[in-house]
Amino acid sequence: MKNKFAKVALTLTVAFSAVAFSTIEKEKKTVDTSTSKVTWKGYKVTGSHEGVVDIKEGHLVFEGDKLTGGEFVVDLTTISATDLEGEYKDKLDGHLKSEDFFDVQKYPTAKMVITKVKSTGKNAYKVTGDLTIKEKTHPVSFELSVYGNKATGAIKIDRSKYDVKYNSGSFFKNLGDKTIYDEFDLVVDLNF
Score class of each variant (00 low, 15 high):
residue 1 M to V: 03
residue 4 K to S: 09
residue 4 K to F: 13
residue 6 A to P: 03
residue 9 A to R: 11
residue 9 A to K: 06
residue 14 V to T: 00
residue 15 A to L: 14
residue 15 A to Y: 08
residue 24 I to F: 10
residue 25 E to C: 14
residue 26 K to F: 02
residue 29 K to D: 02
residue 31 V to N: 04
residue 31 V to F: 09
residue 35 T to R: 04
residue 37 K to E: 12
residue 40 W to C: 03
residue 40 W to V: 04
residue 41 K to V: 15
residue 41 K to S: 15
residue 42 G to L: 05
residue 42 G to I: 08
residue 44 K to H: 11
residue 44 K to I: 05
residue 46 T to G: 14
residue 46 T to L: 12
residue 47 G to D: 01
residue 49 H to V: 02
residue 52 V to A: 07
residue 52 V to W: 00
residue 54 D to S: 15
residue 59 H to S: 11
residue 61 V to G: 01
residue 64 G to Y: 14
residue 65 D to K: 03
residue 66 K to W: 01
residue 67 L to H: 06
residue 67 L to S: 04
residue 68 T to S: 09
residue 70 G to W: 07
residue 72 F to Q: 00
residue 73 V to G: 07
residue 75 D to M: 01
residue 75 D to P: 03
residue 79 I to Y: 02
residue 79 I to T: 07
residue 80 S to F: 01
residue 80 S to Y: 07
residue 81 A to Q: 01
residue 81 A to R: 08
residue 81 A to K: 04
residue 82 T to E: 13
residue 82 T to G: 08
residue 85 E to L: 14
residue 85 E to C: 14
residue 89 K to D: 12
residue 91 K to C: 13
residue 94 G to I: 06
residue 96 L to G: 00
residue 97 K to W: 03
residue 99 E to K: 15
residue 100 D to S: 06
residue 105 Q to H: 10
residue 105 Q to C: 06
residue 106 K to T: 13
residue 109 T to A: 04
residue 110 A to E: 00
residue 111 K to S: 14
residue 111 K to I: 01
residue 112 M to W: 00
residue 113 V to T: 07
residue 113 V to S: 10
residue 116 K to R: 10
residue 117 V to M: 02
residue 117 V to L: 10
residue 117 V to W: 07
residue 118 K to N: 14
residue 119 S to C: 05
residue 121 G to H: 05
residue 122 K to N: 14
residue 124 A to M: 10
residue 125 Y to H: 08
residue 125 Y to M: 07
residue 126 K to E: 13
residue 127 V to I: 14
residue 127 V to S: 11
residue 130 D to F: 06
residue 134 K to C: 06
residue 135 E to T: 09
residue 135 E to I: 02
residue 137 T to P: 02
residue 137 T to Y: 05
residue 137 T to S: 11
residue 139 P to T: 14
residue 139 P to L: 12
residue 142 F to G: 03
residue 142 F to V: 10
residue 144 L to F: 06
residue 147 Y to P: 00
residue 149 N to H: 09
residue 149 N to W: 09
residue 149 N to M: 11
residue 150 K to Q: 11
residue 151 A to I: 08
residue 156 K to T: 10
residue 158 D to K: 04
residue 159 R to Q: 03
residue 160 S to W: 04
residue 162 Y to N: 05
residue 164 V to H: 02
residue 168 S to R: 03
residue 168 S to F: 01
residue 170 S to F: 08
residue 171 F to S: 02
residue 174 N to C: 02
residue 175 L to E: 00
residue 182 D to V: 04
residue 185 D to I: 04
residue 185 D to H: 06
residue 187 V to I: 04
residue 187 V to G: 00
